[in-house]
Design a protein around this nucleic acid. Structure first.
Lengths: 342, 342
DNA sequence: TTGAAAGCGATACCAT
DNA sequence: ATGGTATCGCTTTCAA
């Protein structure tokens, strides 16, 4: 038996060997209930012996399902490998796909050109069973375009301009609140923040949490202690440079990656963390434990996020037109060396 | 016209509207030369008007091509989002796929279980047109298994135990040589190295370059100045802790990520970079410019790597059985603040 | 529970 | 240059 034969095996041939019709083999392959047990076993035997694999294209042509999920990361120009969040998300989704026997296709949309070429294919029938769209750098017309197609999709992260879309997100407001609350409990009085880009929902929501916490504890907000970053280490560094002259005793930074930059800036002017100033980040990705001191931060359940995203998407795909889903996963404060001084 | 209709449009319907046969429409769609110019234009018009898209499954069932490339990252348990190299590679490949109108499917193999389930599907006909296999954590029986199938594949990185396989790699030996040469030219005499895991070809090759450079300049090798890391920041830190007591005046570190750890360790004992000790890394990924001082390193052409990988793979897929390809891309020394002291 | 047969939507060969 | 048609390998009614 050559390796060529292994692959050109068809349902029909298996059926013949098993002495049944191809319908029956198909039922066995698809775990249909209506097959006599001994027949099922016989067919299963032959399948195992021959190494038969159904042909994906034939299958999806006939069944109208591809068993493929697309993960779309729009405008990922310099972020995909600059911020570990994206690989982490990708990993989570990939893992969940493996688990459900789905294939993950990855679409990194970097240019307008990419978008023009890709979107029409994405929303065409028979390309993928569903899409997970990373929300951060979503343009204004991206989701509307998607909605014109009939491919089910789920936004990963709260979309700014499409409250009706299905989405899954972490509790950014709550997480940020916890972060700032922690700083307050550390005895800090002058708490600054470096926000994520404020044209993104992560930026807005984490900033919201910051404001809420200050408000809840009667701490007045000081514009001079607020600076907008844009997700990169460099922007964190720059933001810190702007904030430090006003001598805050704590900084809540919107992401771990930016916190790296903040810490770099603080060390540069010779302040000690957490003695002189406390730092809390957000994400809890690997960099958080690769700095000195290790970073207190808000942990996102990246793996659970991916899994839940895939499951929800598959669920949406099954329902003809269900209720909109807005799923929020909780976060967790992880206390390390960068915040508590004693 | 409902959005439903957009997607259920078939070749046949387009053919009817255009008053030609579906063969002709198919030719137009596939850029076949044998179509009269005015007919082509008329068909193209109708396609644009109707928004017709060929059905991928139907297409690949009939043509035996999927227009999908698989990127496989074996045993990526804690590396995929720990070392920015993997996202960078992924990005490069994704970009190239976009360019060639191919879809990228991502397979992260983390467990033995994943491997058992995935490999048979991967090598089955009709799943992908070709595979790019990341070499670093390749088990011994991975490539042999792949070879049993008839899916063309290309290894990204030199595979340790399969010299006959097609692969593409960067010149790790040459790059490491240049790195160490640079340190020698900086006047350093006692040059240590933190290697990548030595059961990987990156590890072996970069170490080889280190040895070659020392040899070329008559510098004796000192076992005490050599320590094996395992790609992570933490392992770099640990390695440096072991090496620093022997007071080297330079360290060539096998990857930027590990160099981050090395620098952390050096700062901890109060040495100054590059005054007391010079550091050179390898990769030139974002972290390289997020440390103080910025890291001198060997730049890999990640983007070009991805592009070349995809092109080569597609090329292999076209040839029935061509000569084995072993492609090596050059590297470039990027001098920043961590090496030259004056 | 099983089998027969009609699609699924394209490609590609063979005529013309 | 164009059209007719067999074919790709499976799913899914519909009958039996």
């Amino acid at each position: 038996m050559t390796s060529d034969m292994i692959n050109s095996l068809t349902l029909e041939m298996v059926a013949e060997k098993a002495g049944v019709s191809r319908s029956t083999v198909s039922r066995v392959v698809n775990n249909h209930p209506n097959v006599r047990e001994d027949v099922r076993e016989r067919v299963l035997m032959i399948i195992k012996e021959t190494g038969y694999r159904p042909h994906p294209a034939a299958r999806s042509l006939a069944s109208h399902r591809t068993h493929v999920i697309g993960l779309v990361i729009p405008r990922s120009t310099h972020t995909f490998f600059t911020d570990p969040y994206f690989p982490a998300l990708t990993e989570g989704v990939a893992e969940a796909c493996n688990l459900h026997d789905y294939t993950l296709s990855l679409f990194l949309i970097k240019t307008e050109e990419d978008e023009r070429r890709l979107v029409p294919r994405l929303i065409g029938k028979g390309f993928v069973d569903g899409l997970i769209i990373q929300a951060t750098h979503l343009g204004d017309n991206f989701l509307p375009q998607l909605s014109k197609g009939n491919v089910p999709f789920l936004v990963a992260g709260r979309p700014m301009n499409a409250p009706e879309a299905n989405f899954i997100d972490v509790d950014n407001v709550g997480g940020a609140f916890d972060a700032v609350l922690h700083l307050i409990q550390c005895g800090r009085k002058k708490i600054a923040t470096v926000t994520c880009a404020l044209n993104t929902s992560v930026g807005v929501d984490r900033f919201e949490g910051y404001k809420k916490a200050l408000y809840a504890y009667g701490i007045p907000m000081d514009e001079k202690l607020i600076f907008e970053g844009e997700f990169t280490e460099q922007s964190g560094y720059k933001a810190a440079k702007n904030i430090l002259p006003f001598s805050p005793d704590a900084i809540f930074v919107g992401s771990d990656t930016m916190a790296l930059g903040v810490i770099r800036a603080i060390k540069e002017i010779g302040l000690e963390i957490p003695k002189d100033i406390s730092i809390v980040g957000f994400d809890d990705l690997p960099p958080a434990i690769q700095v000195e001191p290790p970073l207190t931060t808000i942990r996102q359940p990246v793996r659970r996020f991916g899994a839940k995203a895939v499951e929800t998407l598959l669920d949406i795909a099954e329902q003809a037109a269900g209720i909109p889903r807005h799923i929020i996963l909780g976060t967790e404060l992880i206390v390390r060396g960068s915040s508590v001084y004693r």
